[in-house]
Simulated assay, not measured.
Amino acid sequence: MPVNVWGYLKEYEAEREEILAAVTDVLGSGKLILGPHVAAFEAEFSAYCGVAQGVGCDNGTNAVMLALLACGLAPGDEVVTVSNTAVPTVSAIVSAGGVPRFVDIDPATYLMDTGRLETAITPRTRAVVAVHLFGQCVNMEAVREVADRHKLLVVEDCAQAHGATRNGQVAGSLSDAAAFSFYPTKILGTYGDGGMVLTGSDAVAAKLRRLRFYGMEKTYYALEHGYNARLDEVHAAILRGKLKHLPAYIARRQALAARYDAALADTSLTLPATAPGNSHAYYLYVARHPRRDAVLAGLRERGVHCNVSYPWPIHTMTGYAHLGYTEGDLPETERAAGEIFSLPLYPSLTEAEQDTAIAALRDTLAALGE
C-alpha cells in the first residue's frame, strides 16, 4: 500500500461517533448559521490560545483579509510578509487592498528573517503579516520591536501553527490579530473549510463580526461594506470536539518527528531546525536536499508520496508580477523552494507506515549515491 503525505480516514474512523453526534446535534437544533456551536467554539479556541476574543469565519484566507481590514488597513497600504508561503496569505493581503512587500527567510527555519524586516519598510508600510510556517513561530519579539518602533500593525498567519508556542505563549496571542485556518489538513482541521480571527481588542472583534456578516449587526441593515464570511455551525461543532484532542494530535506529531530525526540523522538530508524559544507543532516535517526532485522521484517509485510546500515563491508567480519582483530578489527563499519537501506526517500515520517511508528514503538516497 502506498504511504501518503496526509490522510484523514483512519482519524475519522477513530472519532466517527463523536463527529457524527456533533453533526446530528446541529441538524436537529433548528439553528444552522451562527448558532451556539460557533459562539462556543469561538470562546473555547480563543481561551486555548490565551486571547480575549475569537471570531469564526469561513476560511483561513478570509481570516487574514478580515484581520487586516478590521485593524484598519486602507487601500494602497503596504504589508510586509514572506514569499515562501501559501498563495492565500498574499491573496488575502491584496483582497484587503494592501500591497505585499517581501522579506527573505532564515535558511535554517524557513521563517521570516526578522533581521531583514526593517529593510522592507517604507513610508507606505502599515502592517506586518508574520507567517508561522510548518508548525513553528516567527521570532515575534523581534517583529514587535520593529513594528512598535514604526507604529505598524502585526497580524499572525497561524494557519500552520495551531498549538505551537513561542517562549511559552501560544501562536495567535502575539499580535494585534491572528488568523487561523481549519482546512482539513491542518493541525486542527474540520471536514471542509473554516477559519477564525483572534484579537485582544473588543473594537476589532466587533468590526470582525460585522465584516463577516455583510457589515451587519442586525439582519438586513448594513452599517458598512461587508462580506459573507461566516463559519458554519456544523464545522464549529466538529471543531469543538476535535479541539479536545489537539494536545494529543500535537504530541503525536512531535513523536513522529522525533522518530524521523533519529532515523535520518546520518543521511545527507537537512532535517528541520527548531528556533530557540519555540515549541514546534510539526504541521509538516520539512526535509531538504539539493537533489530534491530526484529524491521525490525515487520515493514515488517506492510508493511513498511526499509534498513540496512550496515549489514556487510567490514573488516569481505571474499572478503577482505587478509587484515588481524578479528571480534573484529573495535568494534564500528561492534556494529553499528548489530543495525542500515534506515527508508523511499526521497523527494517524502508523509507525509501520513511517518505517516504510524511512526505508524508502534511505534506499533512494543510496541509489543516488548519497
Results as ranks from 00 to 15, higher is better:
Pro2Cys: 04
Glu13Tyr: 13
Glu18Thr: 10
Leu20Glu: 15
Val26Asn: 04
Leu27Gln: 14
Ser29Val: 07
Ser29Trp: 10
Gly30Val: 03
Lys31Val: 15
His37Asn: 15
Phe45Pro: 01
Val51Ala: 09
Gly54Arg: 04
Asp58Ser: 15
Asp58Asn: 14
Thr61Pro: 00
Val64Lys: 05
Met65Phe: 02
Ala67Glu: 02
Ala67Ser: 13
Ser83Phe: 07
Pro88Asp: 04
Thr89Gln: 04
Val90Asp: 01
Gly97Cys: 07
Gly98Cys: 06
Asp104Cys: 06
Ala108His: 12
Ala108Gln: 14
Ala108Thr: 05
Thr109Cys: 03
Tyr110Asn: 10
Met112Leu: 14
Gly115Phe: 05
Gly115Ala: 10
Leu117Trp: 04
Ile121Ala: 08
Cys137Arg: 08
Met140Ser: 06
Glu145His: 11
Ala147Arg: 10
Lys151Met: 02
Lys151Ile: 00
Leu153Trp: 08
Val154Lys: 06
His162Thr: 12
His162Lys: 06
Arg166Gly: 00
Ala179Ser: 12
Gly189Pro: 05
Tyr191Val: 02
Asp193Glu: 13
Gly194Glu: 03
Ser201Ala: 11
Lys207Gln: 13
Arg210Gly: 01
Leu211Gly: 10
Tyr214Pro: 00
Met216Trp: 07
Tyr221Val: 15
Glu224Leu: 13
Gly226Asp: 12
Asn228Trp: 09
Asp232Phe: 08
Ile238Val: 15
His245Gly: 07
Tyr249Glu: 12
Arg252Val: 01
Ala265Leu: 04
Pro272Thr: 08
Thr274His: 09
Ala281Thr: 08
Ala287Met: 08
His289Tyr: 12
Leu296Arg: 14
Glu301Trp: 00
Val304Gln: 01
Cys306Asn: 09
Trp312Glu: 13
Pro313Met: 10
Ile314Thr: 12
His315Ile: 07
His315Pro: 05
Tyr320Met: 10
Asp329Gly: 03
Asp329Asn: 10
Arg335Asn: 06
Ala337Met: 00
Glu339Thr: 14
Phe341Glu: 03
Pro344Trp: 04
Leu349His: 02
Glu351Arg: 05
Glu351Trp: 02
Asp355Val: 05
Ala360Met: 06
Arg362Trp: 00
Ala366Asn: 07
